[in-house]
Amino acid sequence: SPEEIKAKALDLLNKKLHRANKFGQDQADIDSLQRQINRVEKFGVDLNSKLAEELGLV
């Protein structure tokens, strides 16, 4: 269901964000992850996106 997909995506992105902060990645990478999280919260996951591929939806 779209809600489950959204939850999985947010979980994955939050893990990536945590790792980025923990290991001191570029601020641009961290900002990009934050924008992705905001986009998923607002609009859900686009099944044509790279994120959908990472989640194994495509």
Rank of each mutant, 00 (worst) to 15 (best):
Ser1Asp: 12
Ser1Cys: 13
Ser1Ala: 07
Ser1Tyr: 10
Pro2His: 14
Pro2Ala: 13
Pro2Tyr: 14
Pro2Phe: 15
Pro2Lys: 11
Pro2Val: 12
Glu3Thr: 06
Glu3Asn: 06
Glu4Lys: 08
Glu4Ala: 13
Glu4Thr: 10
Glu4Asn: 08
Glu4Arg: 07
Ile5His: 08
Ile5Gln: 05
Ile5Gly: 03
Ile5Pro: 02
Ile5Glu: 03
Lys6Arg: 12
Lys6His: 04
Lys6Glu: 03
Lys6Val: 05
Ala7Ile: 12
Ala7Lys: 15
Ala7Trp: 09
Lys8Pro: 01
Lys8His: 06
Lys8Tyr: 10
Lys8Gly: 03
Ala9Phe: 05
Ala9Tyr: 05
Leu10Phe: 02
Asp11Asn: 12
Asp11Leu: 10
Asp11Trp: 11
Leu12Pro: 00
Leu12Met: 11
Leu12Gln: 03
Leu13Asn: 00
Leu13Lys: 00
Leu13Thr: 00
Leu13Arg: 00
Asn14Ile: 13
Asn14Phe: 15
Asn14Asp: 04
Asn14Tyr: 15
Lys15Trp: 08
Lys15Asp: 08
Lys15Glu: 12
Lys15Tyr: 08
Lys16Asn: 03
Lys16Pro: 00
Lys16Thr: 02
Lys16Ile: 06
Leu17Asn: 00
Leu17Glu: 00
Leu17Asp: 00
Leu17Ile: 06
His18Lys: 13
His18Trp: 11
His18Asn: 13
Arg19Ile: 14
Arg19Phe: 15
Ala20Pro: 03
Ala20Ser: 04
Ala20Met: 12
Asn21Ser: 08
Asn21Trp: 12
Asn21Ala: 09
Asn21Asp: 04
Asn21Val: 15
Lys22Ile: 12
Lys22Pro: 02
Lys22Cys: 13
Lys22Ala: 12
Lys22Gln: 13
Lys22Gly: 06
Phe23Cys: 15
Gly24Asn: 09
Gly24Ile: 04
Gly24Ser: 09
Gln25Arg: 13
Gln25Glu: 11
Gln25Leu: 14
Gln25Asn: 11
Gln25Ala: 15
Gln25Phe: 15
Gln25Val: 14
Asp26Tyr: 06
Asp26Ile: 08
Gln27His: 08
Gln27Val: 07
Gln27Ile: 09
Gln27Gly: 07
Asp29Leu: 15
Asp29Trp: 15
Asp29His: 14
Asp29Phe: 15
Ile30Lys: 05
Ile30Arg: 06
Asp31Asn: 07
Asp31Lys: 08
Ser32Cys: 15
Ser32Lys: 14
Ser32Ile: 12
Leu33Val: 06
Leu33Lys: 00
Leu33Cys: 02
Arg35Phe: 10
Arg35Asn: 14
Arg35Gln: 13
Gln36Ala: 09
Gln36Met: 13
Asn38Tyr: 10
Asn38Val: 12
Arg39Phe: 15
Arg39Thr: 13
Arg39Pro: 00
Arg39His: 15
Arg39Lys: 12
Arg39Trp: 15
Val40Met: 03
Glu41Val: 10
Glu41Cys: 10
Glu41Met: 11
Glu41Leu: 12
Glu41Ala: 08
Glu41Ser: 10
Lys42Asp: 05
Lys42Glu: 13
Lys42Gln: 13
Phe43Val: 05
Phe43Glu: 08
Phe43Arg: 03
Phe43Trp: 12
Phe43Asp: 07
Phe43Gly: 05
Gly44Cys: 01
Gly44Val: 01
Gly44His: 01
Gly44Met: 01
Gly44Thr: 01
Val45Met: 05
Asp46Val: 05
Asp46Trp: 06
Asp46Leu: 06
Leu47Pro: 12
Leu47Ile: 11
Leu47Cys: 06
Leu47Gln: 05
Asn48Arg: 11
Asn48Pro: 04
Ser49Ile: 02
Ser49Gln: 03
Lys50Pro: 13
Lys50Ser: 12
Lys50Asp: 09
Lys50Val: 10
Leu51Glu: 03
Leu51Pro: 01
Leu51Asp: 02
Leu51Met: 04
Ala52Met: 08
Ala52Glu: 02
Glu53Trp: 14
Glu53Arg: 12
Glu53Ala: 12
Glu54Gln: 06
Glu54Gly: 03
Leu55Ala: 02
Gly56Tyr: 04
Gly56Glu: 05
Gly56Pro: 01
Gly56Ala: 04
Leu57Val: 07
Leu57Pro: 01
Leu57Phe: 11
Val58Leu: 07
Val58Tyr: 11
Val58Met: 11
